[in-house]
């Protein structure tokens, strides 16, 4: 495997459409829940340990070769908000397009055919990591980091937050990203043996409620 493939996949400039999504930060900013870097940090920390953990475990399990159809159904059950399911499939579809162009493979083609409207993003991420020759931990790192870096860069735009402050938040969260990745990879190993019920199901009520409110706004900067 090439470790540099991880940098390609994790690069914010990888053309997978993530920049159009705020990970719920736009709704939180509008609701006055994020007003500066402290609020951003608390938001990212909560997202990391809930949606981030679940995504990282899905990505890690997909990277280990667990059936993407079963993982996608598990993602549905762990994403009750319709708005979040729509956003995740849209992101999955865009990532699939970028990944197939970058790492052409039969495995990606099969998943793309199975889900013409897009599979959940973390599942596609895991399969992409797999065909890029990366491991479960790499996939989990990509996903867990994305769960906080997306909101951080969105809040820079939404609040004109100092980018140095936003990057500081990400650096302070790094040890927790490590722990979440550890838990995600462990859960993914259990999925290989015992099925998708072993995936974590940590939920964030405000992200789910906020996503439904956000989807109903007539004008918004981010798609989710």
């Amino acid at each position: 495997m090439s470790r540099a493939a991880l940098l390609v996949l994790a690069d914010g400039r990888f053309p997978a459409g993530g920049h159009a999504h705020s990970g719920g930060a736009e709704a939180a900013v509008k609701g006055g829940l994020i007003t500066g870097s402290d609020g951003l940090e608390a938001f990212c920390r909560g997202r990391l340990h809930t949606a981030g953990l679940v995504s990282a475990a899905l990505a890690a399990a997909a990277a280990l070769g667990v059936d993407p159809v079963a993982l996608d159904a598990a993602a549905d059950a762990r994403t009750p908000s319709l708005a979040l399911r729509v956003a995740s499939r849209k992101l999955g579809r865009q990532l699939m397009r970028a990944a197939r162009a970058t790492w052409p493979s039969r495995e990606l083609d099969v998943v793309a055919r199975e889900f013409p409207k897009g599979a959940h993003q973390p599942v596609v991420l895991g399969v992409a990591a797999r065909v890029a020759g990366l491991g479960a931990d790499d996939a989990a790192y990509c996903s867990a980091y994305e769960s906080v870096s997306g909101p951080a860069s969105a809040v820079v735009r939404l609040l004109s937050l100092d980018p140095f402050d936003a990057t500081g938040v990400l650096a302070r969260l790094a040890p927790e990203v490590d722990r979440v990745v550890g838990a995600a990879v462990e859960a993914a190993g259990e999925v290989v043996v015992g099925g998708v019920d072993a995936l974590p199901a940590a939920s964030a009520p405000l992200l789910e409620i906020g996503a439904e409110a956000h989807a109903a706004w007539p004008v918004r900067l981010f798609a989710s």
Binding site: A42, F43, L48, H49, A51, L206
Partner: peptide
């Protein structure tokens, strides 16, 4: 509980 549970993403 894992960090951030009372923050703006979870229970606020």
């Amino acid at each position: 509980a894992p960090g951030g549970w009372d923050g703006p993403a979870v229970l606020g």
